[in-house]
Design a protein around this nucleic acid. Structure first.
Lengths: 202, 202
DNA sequence: CTCCCTCTGTACTGACCGGTACAGAAAGAT
DNA sequence: ATCTTTCTGTACCGGTCAGTACAGAGGGAG
C-alpha cells in the first residue's frame, strides 16, 4: 500500500504511493482541521519530506482539497445511498446511521471533517467558502428529495422541505459536534433514535 | 467604559478598564476561536499592550477562560430563563430562540462560542476538556428539567429524557454551525420553527 | 523629597509556521 | 557513457506565534 504505482515515466521514480500518502493526510486533516494540521504533522504521517509533498500535491491548501475530495468520495458515500432510499424516513435514517458509523468507525477520528474544517479553517477563507458551497449542493439535493417525497405522499404536504432539510442537517451536525465532545457510540445512537422518533410520518 | 475602575491601590494605577478589555477579548475569541485569535489580534482589540495583558489576565489561556466566563454569564442567560419555563416545549422554544438571537445579534459574530472553541481549541487540550465539562453541566440540567416535565405530564412518559436533550442540543449546535456557514436569520428561524413542529406534545 | 510598588511601552526571545533553494540520486533517452 | 528529467533529503527563508526582560512612568507611603 505504501509503494509507488509506477506508470513508467521519465526521471527518478517517486518512492511513495500518492494515494496512501493522501489517505494519511486525510487522517491528519480530519483530526486536526486545516489550520491545526501543520506541515510537520502532515509529512510525518505521510512518511515523506516537505519538497516531495509540494511536488506531488502543490501546497497545503491544494492538498487539503484533494483530501476533502477523497473524504467525500469514500467517507460520505452514505449520502448518495440515503438519497436513493424509497421514503423520506429511510433517507433520514440512512443518513443518520451513516453519519454515526462514519464518526465512530474504528480508528477514525471524531466528527465530520466538513464541520470541523468549516469552523477550523482559519484565515484560508477560500476553504471556508468551498465547504459552504459543497454543503449547499448536498442541501439542495436533500430539499429536492423531500419535495419528491411530498409528491409521492410519504411526507406530509404541509411540511416545509427546506425547513426539514435544515433540521436533518442539524441532526447530522449534532452527531458530529457531540462526537467531537467525546460522546460514545451509545450516546449518538440514542440521539439519532430519538431524532427518528420525532421524524414526521405520512 | 474604557477607563479604569480605580480602587485606590499602591503603585502606578492601571490605565484601562479590565472589564472593557475583557469584553473586547471576548469578541475576538468569539469570532476567531482560541487558536485563531493571536495576541496581536487581542491586544489591538483591547487597546492595551502585551505586558499589560499578561499582568492583568495571566496568559492567553486564562484570558480565554475569563472570556468564556463572561460569555456564559452575559450571552447565555437565555439558558437559565429557558429552564425556568413552565413546560418542556417552552423550555425548548426559549432556548432555540435565544440561540438564534445570540447568534444573529447585531454586531455579534456568528456561531456559539462554545461550539466554535470546542472544535477550534487546537493543542490546548485543557480548554477542550473544560468546554466539554461545562457542556455536560448544562446537559444534566436539561435532562432533569425534562424528567420533571414528564412527571408533570407535559411531556409523554415514553420519551427518553437524555435522548430528547441530545436532540435539543443538536438543534442548538445546528443553529450555531449553520450560522457559521452563512445562514441568514430567516434560514435559522425556519430551522427552529420546523424543529418546534417536530417537538413532542403531551 | 525619597522609597517603593505597580503599571507602561519597546524591543526582544526561542519556537514554530508555510514554503523553497540547492545539490545529489535514480531512472529513461540517445 | 552522457544527457535530461524528476524525485530525494538537508538546510534554509522570512514571517508569525506566545511569552518576557527591561527601563521608565506614575501613583501612595514614609
Amino acid at each position: 500500500m505504501n509503494k509507488p504505482e509506477s506508470i513508467a515515466t521519465r526521471g527518478r521514480p517517486r518512492e511513495f504511493c500518492v494515494d496512501y500518502a493522501l489517505a494519511q493526510a486525510l487522517r491528519v486533516f480530519w483530526t486536526k482541521g486545516y489550520e491545526g494540521a501543520s506541515l510537520t504533522d502532515l509529512t510525518e504521517a505521510m512518511g515523506i519530506t516537505r519538497p516531495s509533498l509540494y511536488a506531488a500535491f502543490g501546497n497545503k491548501e491544494s492538498l487539503f482539497r484533494k483530501a476533502l475530495d477523497l473524504y467525500e468520495r469514500e467517507k460520505m458515500a452514505y449520502v448518495g445511498q440515503a438519497l436513493a432510499q424509497p421514503t423520506a424516513r429511510k433517507v433520514a435514517e440512512t443518513m443518520l446511521r451513516g453519519a454515526v458509523d462514519n464518526v465512530c468507525g474504528g480508528d477514525s477520528p471524531h466528527g465530520c471533517m466538513r464541520v470541523i474544517a468549516s469552523v477550523n479553517c482559519g484565515p484560508a477563507e477560500s476553504i471556508h467558502d468551498e465547504i459552504i458551497q459543497r454543503g449547499n449542493l448536498a442541501k439542495q439535493a436533500i430539499i429536492e428529495r423531500f419535495d419528491r417525497a411530498k409528491a409521492e405522499g410519504d411526507l406530509p404536504a404541509n411540511i416545509n422541505s427546506e425547513g426539514l432539510t435544515r433540521v436533518l442537517i442539524a441532526f447530522l451536525q449534532g452527531v458530529s459536534i457531540q462526537a467531537n465532545m467525546e460522546a460514545s457510540r451509545e450516546d449518538l445512537d440514542l440521539l439519532i433514535e430519538t431524532a427518528l422518533d420525532l421524524w414526521p410520518s405520512a
